[in-house]
Amino acid sequence: MRRAMSAAPVLRSPLPAWPQYDDGERAGLTRALEQGQWWRMGGGEVDAFEDEFARYHGADHGLAVTNGTHALELALQVLGVGPGSEVIVPAFTFISSSQAAQRLGAVAVPVDIDPVTYNIDPVAAAAAVGPRTRAIMPVHIAGEVADMDALGKISADTGVPLLQDAAHAHGARWQGRRIGELDSVAAFSFQNGKLMTAGEGGAVLFPEAGLREEAFLRHSCGRPRTDRFYFHRTSGSNFRLNEFSAAVLRAQLARLDGQIDTREKRWPLLSGLLAEIDGVVPQGRDTRCDRKPHYMAMFRIPGLVEQQRNELVDRLVAAGLPAFAAFRVIYRSDGFWETGAPDVSVDDLARRCPNAEAVAADGIWLHHRTLLGTEKQIHEIAEIIAWALTESRSGR
């Protein structure tokens, strides 16, 4: 047990800022500017980034898009998701995972999660597969890769493809295999808080050239790259990434490995310190996930109700930590029910998803920049959390 403190502990130096940038981004922006073509059809930055990002993740085919939500939507579309179909998603995730399917006219089917890793429960996913299921979407929460062995078997047995929501999992590995080597489509986000960022942006990795070609057409209004006479082969939209964003992302990718190395060193220390605090349970890890980029430093405080958890988060923020409440389960947001919701009640879904309900109510996460700090700062972070929890429990 960590000793309670009467005075509020503080961070003695600022945590690393996010986003991070240096002359690499500056040079890239200048390069994109001076090439004289600022959209992907005339420039070279997007093409270069797609190749570099795909190779880094062990994939042969990559496509850069406007954001992570569009990456999911586009990936689902090329997998055949549309009106009348269903997509299985974890109940505990950011709502883009479900909304990407719902915007295509499909029904999002939430299932429960593993209480240790917070990832989709393969048993629950298998039980939800039905005749209208067109995709299963594991979300690699906080960079912890979902059980791709069990999920891969479900996919092979049922013929339902997997779509990895890898918005948190840049650079992750599962038993030595990179995200692009796991035999399924994967979608990434480059939103401002992500592990690499251009403010917004996204990417999709494909195991087959044909899927990438269809996605290219659909992300460019159905129009082939060489078309000059407006023959649009498919329906689609404009999901094209611009050259400036791609130039920034190329520089961001170049430093990603070093940042992951640092976070992999810091998390065991922080996790161990948090586990010493009465009532705090850090997110667990499946040892088959042998490289975890740690998009979030996540932990739970079982026994807290949601309002208590929210007050604790406010206390941590006031103490200078980039702390956040865990995601709300997707079916407890009004937006989930606007279109493409299953024909069941919130209470029915809650009974099916007890683990997701629990993590959503008492979970907290710290932004990954905390794990880029020094070992001394990691100790200070744990002290602040211990103090804040003691204060919350005392009612002060």
Results as ranks from 00 to 15, higher is better:
44 G>R: 11
13 S>W: 00
229 F>G: 04
95 I>A: 09
240 R>N: 10
52 E>W: 01
331 Y>I: 04
107 V>N: 00
221 C>Q: 06
51 D>F: 03
96 S>Q: 04
395 G>H: 11
306 E>G: 06
390 T>E: 15
189 S>N: 10
373 G>S: 11
218 R>L: 02
350 A>L: 00
43 G>K: 00
2 R>H: 11
244 F>C: 00
2 R>M: 15
322 P>H: 00
155 S>H: 07
23 D>L: 02
134 R>L: 07
327 F>K: 02
367 H>Y: 00
368 H>E: 03
191 Q>H: 13
327 F>D: 13
110 P>Y: 13
287 T>K: 03
220 S>K: 02
62 G>I: 11
352 R>A: 15
235 S>Y: 08
266 R>Y: 02
362 D>Y: 01
187 A>Y: 10
290 D>V: 09
325 A>H: 06
328 R>T: 14
384 I>F: 05
41 M>K: 05
263 R>P: 07
59 A>I: 03
333 S>K: 09
321 L>P: 13
394 S>I: 08
175 Q>I: 01
363 G>H: 01
347 D>N: 12
270 L>Y: 10
159 G>M: 08
142 A>C: 10
267 W>E: 01
286 D>K: 04
371 L>N: 04
57 H>N: 09
182 L>R: 10
82 G>W: 03
26 R>E: 13
291 R>G: 09
281 V>S: 07
325 A>N: 05
134 R>T: 11
305 V>Q: 10
291 R>I: 09
120 I>M: 15
225 R>V: 09
149 D>H: 12
41 M>G: 15
86 E>C: 00
202 G>R: 10
74 L>A: 12
387 W>M: 02
90 P>E: 08
209 A>Q: 13
7 A>V: 08
346 V>L: 05
34 E>H: 08
150 A>P: 04
357 E>M: 15
208 E>C: 02
24 G>S: 11
275 A>W: 14
331 Y>F: 15
354 P>R: 08
210 G>F: 04
214 E>V: 09
88 I>Y: 01
347 D>W: 03
350 A>N: 09
